[in-house]
Amino acid sequence: MPILSIDFLINGLASGAALALLCLGLTLTYMTTRVPNFAHATIAVVGAVVTLLLLDWVYIGLRGGAVYYTLYIVAPILSALIAGLLALTIYIAILRPLSKKGIGIIGLMIATFALDIIINNILTLILHLTPSKYIGKLIGASVKGYGVLVYIPILDVNIYLSRLLLPIIAVILTISLHLYMTRTKFGIAMRASIENPQLAKALGINVDLVYAISWFLSGSLAGLAGSFLAFEFPGINPAIAYLYIVSIFAGSILGGLSSMYGALAGGLVVGVSEVLIPVMIQNIYYTITGSIIDIIRYQKFISLLIIIIVLLVAPQGLAGVSWRNLLARVVRVG
């Protein structure tokens, strides 16, 4: 038994890519409006549910057909759009008015906590009451899903197409977001508003618009990540968001909650570790003792450990570490 197989690596990468996008969104709204959004994972599930409903609606037994493949483009875009609009609505209709009334950070946080539970329950209701055409029921585990498995001859593995696509899309998104933030006037204005809203306002930048856009972006990134989840799992239980939010916070805290690149790195590290570390431990245990321990269901513990370690050792996260000094020291020692 090898320590790691190629499909586990791809799974890890997909999980890391999804989490990177989610951490990026959470960090973005935290940097602009200073609210830790406890509803972020549920917004991702909104994306998943939109895709699931779409798949269930148009699926016509053509798994793998041309019509079906176009869904891999249409569904994520639609999910991202709807989740983005939802996040925007949350900000404009609830958080901004609350903040204008002078509600402090704890109050805003509790508002997102309440929104999380409201949206999650609405999703549960929708999934329960919508009869599924093909997969029995839309909530919880059902036997067959809508995902397409792709056979990769060189590696001799079958992989869900969505898992292959997700990391690629995450990379494309990261690059385009980077270009947007550094090359366009409005992108630069966003960074300016994040750093110094007073000065930005004085220079005529519409800071309110920047905040609104950050919520829309944050929501659509979450919706996109969630959409790919729906291709893999036939039935979705919205309650997974209650655990998943911990991983998102872990990645964001590791990233430092103060830099977009930190968030991407933090999410990637947490997502990959959650998949690979339990498998590695399992394999090492197997090679030593010859028996199997079932620890994969505890994988989410890694997130908690990461939160604890980061907060105790370097509460500023990756973004707070002075990489140049560290590198200089390493080079000097080397």
């Binding site: 830790p36 704890i106 939010i245 911990v246 916070f249 805290i253 997130s303 939160i307 907060l311």
Partner: peptide, 10 residues
């Protein structure tokens, strides 16, 4: 708040 939530859920 995040830490308390994380510990509780985990």
């Amino acid at each position: 708040a995040i830490v308390l939530l994380a510990f509780s859920e985990m």
